[in-house]
């Protein structure tokens, strides 16, 4: 049997096999998307865990220092200092061990991003607290390339600053210069959304 004979034999054998199911392509893309989301979530949680380690040394008690906080002047009703934990949107739950993770969070006006916070009361303070960071986990509904650009404007003032989260929505520490209600324009890739966050005086 020559090499050419073998080639002919292999081709004939392959030709006799039934045609592959074209649905393989759709199933591959769907499975690939799930893997991409899982990997992204793993990276996000890994980075979040790293942030948690940085913040360690301090005790992250959800109710810490709440009682003696002075109420801040909030320029908009959307800004809050208390965040009742709620079940996250389904698209923002990837990577959480619970099927219905409950966290304090703020949903963007367009519903395309959530800012997950790490305390129920005054999660964000100015100046940054000694015992914890102004940690925000951003999760976008749609994955997109590029960094997350934040244009923050202090409502009722002319104060504006920008912040960048490298790698796009993910774990971040966002410190802002003044206490008050901040309006955040968020852009990542071709996605855009807006939300407001209160930074309380520490």
């Amino acid at each position: 049997m020559s090499e050419t004979d073998l080639t002919v034999l292999l081709e004939q054998t392959a030709d006799r096999s039934p045609a592959p199911d074209p649905g393989i392509i759709d199933r591959s893309i769907a499975a690939g998307e799930r893997r991409v989301r899982r990997r992204t979530a793993t990276r996000v949680l890994g980075a979040a865990a790293a942030l948690a380690v940085v913040a360690a040394g301090a005790t992250w008690t959800i109710n810490a220092k709440v009682a003696d906080r002075t109420p801040a002047t909030s320029a908009a009703e959307a800004c809050r200092r208390d965040y009742t934990p709620r079940v996250l949107p389904a698209w923002a739950t990837t990577g959480f061990s619970s099927p219905n993770p409950t966290m304090p969070y703020v949903l963007g006006d367009r519903g395309d991003i959530v800012a997950i916070l790490w305390a129920e009361h005054d999660p964000l303070v100015v100046p940054p607290a000694q015992d914890r960071n102004n940690k925000i986990l951003w999760v976008g509904r749609v994955a997109s390339e590029g960094s997350l650009q934040i244009k923050a404007h202090l409502i009722g003032s002319d104060r504006s600053v920008t912040r960048t989260v490298d790698g796009g929505p993910g774990p971040s520490i966002i410190d802002l210069p003044d206490a008050g209600c901040w309006s955040l324009d968020l852009t990542w890739g071709k996605q855009h959304d807006h939300l407001q966050l209160e930074y309380a005086p520490s």
Binding site: A14, S17, I24, R27, A31, R35
Partner: peptide, 27 residues
């Protein structure tokens, strides 16, 4: 698929192999 069917010797296994290949490639 033609390569996969000769590698695995079975239609269903060949489809599984192609699907896994395309999935990995898509990522």
């Amino acid at each position: 698929y033609r390569s996969a069917v000769l590698l695995t010797g079975q239609h269903q296994s060949a489809e599984d192999l192609v699907q896994e290949t395309l999935t990995r490639m898509y990522v």
